[in-house]
């Protein structure tokens, strides 16, 4: 527990004290909360605008969670490796899994800060959501799936990429790519090939139920809460996390 807590404590302090991390994680989604309605929702009837703003806020929260898992986590691991920290900590009687879970938990708390901040900004800006408490709990579960899958990708990036800048940019690039295929541009607006992809990709597939539960069927365009869809999303997210953890323990931890 001490090792987990030490790792968590260090990581969360590093995140909160790094202006570049705060800027890249919250800055872009914050900007999108204000810009997207101006650019894309100009012709939308006024009655429908709060729902679209709500939809946009949810998309930006998902983007933040993806950036934290894929970019911040991988960037911080690679930066620590470049700094020689892994040379040092691998000489300690330390379990790599406890160490990385501390980092992951710090990323979760950082994502939560982003979630609260962006939700408040969205609400102040006129976003509207309609849901029950049960819907909200289920939606949080799916947001956790996005987080778990993103962490998996982040751990894979940190295992195969050398250089903090390369890892961070690859993480941001992947987050943006996923964002545009099924999150920023929802299912109904995608060409048919990308619609299929958005149902398979665990990150976009986990986002669909969030949109469905908090904004309704009309906004998403299909029912994502089917057995097959849910099973594949959970299994693929867990697989990404498992592969990431395995690579971290066997590659990233030992890489010099």
């Amino acid at each position: 527990m001490n090792q987990f807590y030490a790792s968590y404590n260090r990581s969360i302090k590093e995140y909160l004290r790094d202006k570049a991390i705060i800027g890249s994680t919250f800055g872009m989604p914050l900007l999108f909360i204000f810009i997207v309605p101006v650019v894309f929702f100009g012709d939308v009837p006024r009655d429908f605008l709060p729902t679209l703003k709500g939809m946009n806020t949810l998309a930006q929260i998902a983007l933040t969670v993806m950036i934290v898992g894929q970019s911040n986590l991988s960037g911080s691991i690679v930066a620590d490796r470049e700094r020689g920290l892994y040379r040092k900590i691998s000489s300690l009687p330390l379990n790599p899994v406890k160490e990385v879970l501390g980092r992951v938990f710090a990323s979760l708390v950082f994502s939560l800060i982003g979630l609260i901040f962006l939700s408040l900004v969205g609400l102040i800006y006129g976003a509207e959501f309609s849901f029950s408490i049960v819907d909200l709990i289920i939606a949080i579960f799916f947001l956790l799936l996005i987080f778990i899958a993103s962490v998996g990708i982040g751990l894979i990036i940190s295992s195969i990429i050398n250089g903090e800048s390369a890892a961070t940019h690859l993480g941001i690039g992947l987050s943006m790519l996923i964002f545009f295929i099924g999150i920023g541009f929802p299912y109904t607006q995608l060409p048919s090939e990308l619609q299929v992809l958005s149902k398979i990709n665990p990150l976009t597939a986990a986002y669909a139920p969030i949109l469905y539960l908090l904004e309704g069927y009309e906004v998403l365009g299909y029912n994502p809460l089917t057995f097959v869809q849910l099973t594949s999303t959970i299994v693929l997210s867990a697989m990404l996390f498992g592969i990431g953890l395995f690579l971290y323990k066997n590659v990233a931890w030992r890489k010099r």
């Binding site: 090792q3 030490a6 404590n9 302090k13 020689g84 040092k88 300690l92 009687p93």
Partner: peptide, 24 residues
């Protein structure tokens, strides 16, 4: 190790606390 592995964004005390707790 030869490299400066301590975190520049943490204080000296916080760095030491990190390694002490990491050691169990």
């Amino acid at each position: 190790p030869q490299e400066n592995f301590s975190s520049p964004r943490l204080t000296g005390r916080e760095n030491l606390l990190y390694f002490a707790q990491l050691s169990g």
